[in-house]
Computed example of a mutant assay.
Amino acid sequence: MASVRVETIVAAEPAAVWAAIADVGAVHRRLLPGRVRDARIEGDVRILTMPDGTEVRELIVAVDHDGRRMAYSVQGPGRLTLAHHHAAFEVFDHDGGRARLVWTTDVLPHDRAAAVRARVERGLEEIRSTLESQPAA
């Protein structure tokens, strides 16, 4: 299994970053408001609607408030035709009241890792920018 790990420093309080990550039903408003048009929760499944109307189903595996870790798994092959996908966001304290946000994604087949890395890097930059543009709590 290929593993992609990308991280960034967010100029926002770690608690605020975690609150946005943990709000799994609001990814379209709090994390990726241009990339995701809507999100809804059905049991443990989050359904993301993309701007073109495509839906992505994600099983929410864990929301660990103490460890500030949220894990999910894309269900179905999706656009990259992955046989397996599991990802997690983790929020850590960083100096100066900032947060270190880490996004780790495990995928099969291995040869999809480069495409996944490109999407994760672009997505994490968008998330960082969105979080930094939100007013402090």
Rank of each mutant, 00 (worst) to 15 (best):
A2V: 00
A2S: 07
V4A: 02
R5E: 15
V6R: 12
E7V: 00
I9K: 03
I9G: 01
V10S: 04
A11V: 12
A12D: 03
A12Q: 05
E13G: 07
E13R: 13
A16W: 05
V17M: 11
I21W: 04
D23L: 03
D23Q: 04
V24Y: 08
V24P: 03
A26M: 08
A26N: 15
H28K: 10
R29A: 04
L32W: 12
G34H: 15
G34S: 11
G34M: 11
V45A: 02
L48P: 03
T49V: 02
M50Q: 12
P51F: 15
D52Y: 00
G53N: 00
E55V: 08
E55G: 06
R57T: 07
L59C: 09
L59D: 13
I60R: 01
V61L: 12
V61Q: 07
A62Q: 11
A62F: 10
V63A: 07
D64E: 08
G67H: 01
R68C: 03
R69L: 06
R69C: 01
R69S: 01
V74Q: 10
V74S: 04
V74K: 03
G78N: 10
T81N: 14
T81V: 09
L82N: 06
A83F: 13
A83S: 15
H85I: 08
A88Q: 09
V91Q: 09
F92C: 09
F92N: 10
F92T: 11
D93G: 11
D93H: 05
D95V: 14
D95G: 13
G97C: 00
A99C: 06
V102Y: 04
W103D: 05
T104M: 08
D106V: 07
V107G: 01
A113N: 01
A115G: 02
A115F: 05
R117T: 13
R119C: 12
R119V: 09
V120P: 10
L124W: 04
R128V: 03
S129D: 14
S133F: 11
S133A: 14
Q134V: 10
P135E: 11
